[in-house]
Design a protein around this nucleic acid. Structure first.
Lengths: 172, 172
DNA sequence: TATTGTTATACTCTATAACTATA
DNA sequence: TATAGTTATAGAGTATAACAATA
């Protein structure tokens, strides 16, 4: 991978190079077996999307509605409905009534689901921690700080863009 | 998104938080229309995987074989074969003979393909540059530098992991 | 009438398997 | 016999549309 434009005074060539690598990383993570291996080791099977629901519930620290899970995961509702059905069948999550709204139900992990999710997260975090083990402390701290801010800024700007699209759709 | 473990002395809670946000960012990028809009504005249509091939060729700066494109994009060969067929039909890329190996052919963008790819990259880079416009210069530089290194380290460690899987498969 | 969720269906992306041609 | 690529098929993941129940 050799960038073509050698201009050292703007952020652009480095940015392009970084985005290219991130894109490749995403493909490697999808193709690779790291996540699947972590899920199997934790007793969660191979259902990656369902694992995502459990992680969302675990980091939220409280039962969530279908719509809340979908928004946090940036996917549509029907997809979550089916993942929750999978989790219910496997005894990893359950539905409880929402005391404030009879249309909705709250989703929460079962004891087995919570334990498996913790094992899964420990596996993944350990793997990434190992990968960063050789890094200088300062760089590690900078990376996690900047990565989180970058993701938040981009996600926020993206949803603004999509809201504009929705307006366009309504007008036409 | 409130993390549960409040231990301020290790990289782990921040790392989990960062990974969670990156995962959400990935979903938002997939669902959102940013990439599609950039591709359409550039005259590349909606075929995202084919756009990826063009970007790979453009950043390589020279014609590549199918297998080289697949490796750089971290996907399997047949997938590239079909994307290149799409690009050929649309006049954005062409196949030329590989002088060193009659089994292979080299893929290169046409003039129209190269121009459209440049427009596409300019659009995307501009969008990300705008997103980072308010950031301190130092943070921007650190982010691109650390992000590129992080992606390289993780990608390398992942392919080691997958090589192990392949060995396992052969043994059984 | 608007909102929450579900069911049914379709589409995109990518992988695997079987095959052809050349090394 | 091994390698580069192609064709055909299958699967995972997620979206859209139509619908039901409740607010």
């Amino acid at each position: 991978m050799s960038a073509e434009a050698p201009a050292p005074d703007g952020p652009r060539p480095d940015l392009l190079s970084a985005l290219t690598r991130i894109s490749r990383l995403g493909a490697a993570l999808n193709r690779g077996r790291l996540v699947e291996r972590a899920a199997e080791d934790a007793g969660l099977g191979r259902d990656r999307a369902a694992v995502g629901v459990l992680v969302t519930l675990r980091t939220a620290g409280k039962p969530l509605r279908i719509g809340e899970i979908a928004e946090r995961m940036q996917v549509v509702g029907p997809h979550i409905t089916r993942q929750v059905q999978v989790l219910e069948k496997r005894g990893l999550a359950r539905r409880i009534p929402d005391p404030h709204d009879a249309r909705a139900r709250l989703i929460e992990p079962t004891g087995a689901g919570a334990e498996a999710t913790d094992r899964y997260l420990a596996f993944l975090l350990g793997w990434f921690t190992d990968t960063l083990a050789d890094w200088p402390r300062q760089d590690r701290d900078d990376l996690t700080r900047l990565l989180a801010r970058f993701a938040d800024d981009v996600t926020a700007r993206l949803s603004g863009l999509d809201d504009l699209d929705d307006l366009d759709d309504e007008e036409s």
